[in-house]
Amino acid sequence: MQWGSASEFFAMGGYGLYVWTSFVATALCMVWEVLSLWRRRVAVRAEQRAALLGGIDETTA
C-alpha cells in the first residue's frame, strides 16, 4: 500500500480534485439512476393496482 495517512490518500498526490470528482460523479449518477427507477417502479405498481381494482369494479358493477 502506498498511503502513509488518510490525508495522503484523499490528496491523491495532488490530483485529489480530479480523481474524487470522477468517482463521486459516477457514484452519484448510479445512485440517482437506481433511485429514479425505484420511484418509477412504485408508480408502476400503483398504476397496476389501480388497473386491477378498476377492472374488477367494472365486472362486478
Partner: peptide, 23 residues
C-alpha cells in the same frame, strides 16, 4: 486504490482509469 501501484508517468491521476475505461 490500495493495491494497484502509482503510475510512474501520471502519478495518482491515472486512478481515474478505474471509472473512465469501464464507463
Amino acid at each position: 486504490f490500495f493495491i494497484a501501484p502509482t503510475d510512474f508517468q501520471q502519478g495518482e491521476a491515472y486512478r481515474i482509469i478505474f471509472v473512465h475505461v469501464p464507463a
